[in-house]
Design a protein around this nucleic acid. Sequence first.
DNA 1: GTCATTTTTGACACGCCGTCAAATAACACC
DNA 2: GGTGTTATTTGACGGCGTGTCAAAAATGAC
Lengths: 264, 264
Amino acid sequence: MKMTEPITLSPKQAEIRSRESRILQLARPMVARQGLAGLSMEAIAKEMAYAKGTIYNHFACKEEILLALAIQANEKRLELFMVATEKAIRSRDKISAIGVACEDFRVRFPDLFEIDSMVRHSTVWEKASQKRREMMAVCEQRCMGMVSEIGRESIANGDLILPTGTGIEDIVFGLWSLTYGGMIINDSSPGLDQIGIRDSFAAIRRNCHALMDGFRWQPLYDAQADQKLVRSVRATLKRKVPQGVIVTASDGKVAERQQGGAER
Amino acid sequence: MKMTEPITLSPKQAEIRSRESRILQLARPMVARQGLAGLSMEAIAKEMAYAKGTIYNHFACKEEILLALAIQANEKRLELFMVATEKAIRSRDKISAIGVACEDFRVRFPDLFEIDSMVRHSTVWEKASQKRREMMAVCEQRCMGMVSEIGRESIANGDLILPTGTGIEDIVFGLWSLTYGGMIINDSSPGLDQIGIRDSFAAIRRNCHALMDGFRWQPLYDAQADQKLVRSVRATLKRKVPQGVIVTASDGKVAERQQGGAER
DNA sequence: GTCATTTTTGACACGCCGTCAAATAACACC
DNA sequence: GGTGTTATTTGACGGCGTGTCAAAAATGAC
């Protein structure tokens, strides 16, 4: 029978723990290059000079690894959300700041963005373990919840008045659809810019504002003010969140590993 | 050396042609069930009682089959667009009608919807042949183009005045992102309705209207009028487009095969 | 009926998944 | 250090699938 967690880790235990994140580190570029098919348990084992079985001790299948990476992705995204909203005062500005954070995430962690979207396919989702699915769900709720909270703030101080039959979640859902959907379409629609979309991020941002304007969420869109805010949030993100990877062990503990950040 | 296309097909030629669509018919449910991984050239060959090599004569790889199905999907969607807009008079109503057509497509051809989104992944897209990719791009442009055209109509008669720096394509892109993104998120976000989204289609529709309202696209949203329109379009679609599959041979010829339609 | 051309066939080489009994390493206690 | 127990690692194995290609079979023109 297994006792409760020991206070100190034996050297062996520690080695096993660290292996977990090494696997994820190796897996990430594989997935980025070739999708789920490019992620090979065999290849990971060979690369790490372990037998295949050892890798399977950590993750029961490819999909588990993918989900673990997706969880990292959402943690990173949430981190960006936090940093982005720090300085904003009016609620609607906070929403805009989160939009910029989404762009930033997409640009600076394209592989994580991709992984996050892969995980949504039922064929992946269904193969992963209950436990990890729940962890993922929690991550997602935290992101959504943060935006909803800002919305409620806006309602409380009178900046937003909901039409009857519409909840703040519906609007959050809309902003999210617009942002996420726009990015997916932009990545995958051949000749979209040919049709007239030069800067798809700008278009997405503009559309989010139109959506909020449509609900008369105050203060209404002002091109100049928006541009200023976008620039400021981008600068903040660049300064406070250097390139990096959050490595999460399966037990939920988190370790940070910086890759290219100039500052500590 | 090959001559130009003969006017009449030899029996053998005809058999080969028809095999093409039989393959697609078989492939469709496979993909629907298990995604790309569930689509097996081997299984198709076995099912059809041909050798594997024969299947490879038609499609160089799984991805080719998937793309062929995606093309069918887009043809079907365009058909729904056409039918849906038939009766609308005001441009903005036509846009709403297309939104309803998107819902209808999602509901009645969920497998095609899924296939369409699978094809967007770079790992699939890149493996398919140039030729088929172009066919797909054309299909997509036709759908987009139809919506843009309606937008231009609105501008021409004064129902919509674009802000400077915004093109009609940007708004179309927004509507599309909202609709497509919303459906994807709805399918894949665990516990979205738990958070408060009961009827995601209604939410998407409402958000599309908010987006248009945000651009002051006339006539502005009116819940009653909208509900009436939605019902009417749904009825029209059900009547004029019974369940069916468009089967397209690789040469672009089209054959229709009805599955469950009561009327011819 | 003959022969050139087109089409089909299925064995083959390869790669990967996930399993599991046996081998090895770690540890706890004397 | 020795010994027995438990935890971990190993890699061969069966299964499934891809994509190829030389040989076999079918087709059709004369």
